[in-house]
């Protein structure tokens, strides 16, 4: 294992972490504030990627496609809220699971009907094409660096929004005790809608950003949804800070584990056994991490204090 490989994989891990954070931020807020399990959050990420493809085909420019797809993702999120989710807020968690599972089935199939089952992609924009030399013998694609920077920027913006604005204050209050916030005269339904639309837009944004580097295909959100749940559970439900730190942690552990687990296993085991065990351990790492965290801290690393 060389230092260059380690550096590349660390950056790749952070990049996965940033994508995960964009998805997990909405998920943890929707869950924390509305006590709503939204399994359909992963398909909103997928929808963002598909909308980016469609908007790119329409405009031929990534920079026009980005705001267009973002607005469309927001509109789709609000439409889903209006049609389905709104009627589920005061229902049992398991009802929410079943209904949002139905939404996943429907949307995964709908994109297949509209755009076909074959993977699609959006070309990397001209401006961000190419790679930069970070240090000697080590080039890294500009787009991926830009993605990292944008993600960190969004995280910072979100932090300011949640900790320094009035809406953010209401969101935090809602995460610790929603009925009390409603009793104090805040229109909680409208707050829910804002949080929901914002979360959907963030997930869509992650999808748009991922479209030039990952293949856009039906079901692409399903595995990320599970990872995003792992992130919010480790971070503590309702906590943006927890989601950010644990998203980076999960991204790094998963990416580095996949690159180095087999090598590490070789030091301890005969090569043939190591080749079997390495990849399995690498895939398991984040789940072992989650089980470990929950064993010692049953409410995650940064639990939101609730009444």
């Amino acid at each position: 294992m060389s230092t260059t490989l380690l550096a590349v994989q660390t950056l790749n891990g952070m990049q996965l972490g940033i994508l995960l954070f964009l998805i997990a931020a909405g998920l943890t807020l929707v869950f924390g504030v509305m006590d709503f399990i939204n399994l359909a959050h992963g398909v909103q990420y997928m929808l963002g990627a598909y909308l980016a493809v469609a908007a790119y085909k329409l405009t031929g420019s990534f920079w026009l496609a980005l705001p267009l797809a973002l607005l469309a993702a927001l509109a789709c999120g609000l439409l889903l809220e209006f049609l389905v989710f709104r009627h589920l807020y005061d229902r049992d968690h398991l009802d929410q699971v079943l209904a949002t599972f139905g939404v996943i089935l429907f949307l995964n199939e709908a994109v297949k009907v509209i755009w076909g089952a074959a993977p699609l992609s959006v070309p990397v924009p001209e401006l961000l094409n190419g790679s930069i030399r970070l240090f000697e013998n080590f080039n890294y694609p500009v787009y991926r660096v830009a993605l990292l920077g944008t993600g960190l920027g969004v995280a910072a913006l979100l932090y300011v929004l949640v900790t320094r604005t009035r809406v953010g204050m209401l969101v935090r209050a809602g995460a610790s005790n929603a009925p009390m916030v409603a009793a104090l005269g805040v229109n909680i339904r409208r707050l829910f809608m804002i949080v929901f639309g914002f979360g959907a837009m963030l997930a869509g944004f992650a999808g748009i950003m991922a479209a030039p580097i990952l293949s856009v295909e039906p079901g692409m959100g399903d595995n990320l949804l599970i990872l995003a749940f792992v992130v919010i559970v480790i971070g503590g439900i309702g906590s943006i800070r927890g989601a950010f730190l644990s998203a980076l942690l999960i991204g790094l552990v998963d990416t580095l584990g996949r690159s180095f687990a087999t090598d590490i296993a070789r030091m301890l085991l005969p090569p043939s056994a190591a080749n079997d065990v390495g990849p399995a351990i690498a895939s398991m790492l984040i789940y072992i991490l989650m089980a470990g965290v929950l064993f010692f801290r049953p409410s995650g690393l940064f639990p939101v204090r609730t009444a």
Binding site: I237, V277, I281, Y287, A291, L294, S299
Partner: peptide
């Protein structure tokens, strides 16, 4: 030891561990 959604996720974790163990056999 855990409750609610944390229980959901920790059982998922053990399920995934069993799954990946099977893939390595």
């Amino acid at each position: 030891r855990t409750r609610g959604v944390y229980f959901i996720m920790i059982t998922l974790a053990f399920g995934q561990m069993a799954y990946f163990t099977a893939t390595s056999l």
